[in-house]
Write a protein that binds this DNA or RNA. Structure first.
Lengths: 157, 157
DNA sequence: GCCGAATGTTCTACCATATAACATTTCCGC
DNA sequence: GCGGAAATGTTATATGGTAGAACATTCGGC
């Protein structure tokens, strides 16, 4: 910081910076939308205390019991190094279990515990209502499909 | 971790976890798209060494010279506490300057330095080509407009 | 049998976000 | 005017997600 004299203020409106330069950028709006959606996700999942990452891991283990850590991590785009703390947390909460695989002594096979299955069921219900809220916000299933298609084009290689 | 015997593996395909449960969720795909876009942003801006946040701050100061920190931060959805380190970094790199405002001894008025203006000009050029790449990926300006509209619906209150 | 690859793990680093607390300064109602 | 509420910048701390490098163990192909 310094205290040299300031150039004159040439802004059009003194208290409302013009966000124009960035508000039209795809990546910027994508970011803002994602933040908004995750914010609402956190509200819905406050009771279950699940982050988006944790929810997706539970959902994938539920759909693919016995998967290896690397498989689940890769399917979600998470580095296997970063997956360790995540799955350890779910383990510590008694929602998941890591068993030694029969044929491969390196890999851990992932399963839901009985409590994990209960939590997953409740999480799926919460997610369903949250998803419905998002679709309503978008203006219907057709708009949702359109958005999903456009986002897929951004994801592709 | 434990080493109790594993339940049988009941997955449909042993090496490809079914991402279905989450791949159809709006928030999940939003997240993946945002990661992909920011990844490419980082590639384009590697030479200028600007993060998305830094670029947006430069762009807003360029469009609104003399704005206060709180104004720029609020316009970008950044908490003013987190904005401090950001603007200090740009200051340290000689791209921005914080001057005392005439009328308010609390506020800092933000300006670009000469070098900051040069960097901003180059950054705008890089951003323009990157944006064009995103639009091409989406399939044209119409698709871009559609996406921006759908994302705006998710952002709104 | 050996060597490369896979797997889980630890460590470290970076970016972004959130909340709370604080000193200074301004503003507003009375 | 004065006093309390609000704004501004700042510090500190915590959380969550990402990334890369290195390591020991284990598997598999040749």
């Amino acid at each position: 910081m310094d205290d040299r004299p300031s150039p004159p203020d040439t802004r059009p409106h003194r208290n409302r910076p013009d966000a124009g330069p960035v508000s039209g950028i795809v990546g910027y709006r994508l970011r803002r939308a994602q933040m908004a959606v995750f914010q609402r996700f956190a509200t819905h999942f406050a009771e279950l205390a699940l982050t988006p990452a944790e929810f997706s891991v539970l959902a994938l283990i539920e759909a693919n019991p016995g998967s290896k850590q690397s498989e689940i991590a890769a399917a979600l785009g998470i580095k296997r190094a970063n997956f360790v703390a995540l799955i350890r947390g779910l383990d510590a909460r008694g929602l998941t279990e890591r068993h030694q695989t029969a044929g491969d002594r390196r890999a851990n096979a992932l399963f839901l515990t009985a409590e994990g299955r209960q939590v997953a069921a409740r999480a799926n219900a919460v997610q369903a209502t949250f998803e419905a809220e998002c679709v309503a916000r978008l203006g219907g299933a057709a708009a949702r499909d359109q958005l999903m298609d456009l986002l897929a084009r951004l994801i592709g290689p």
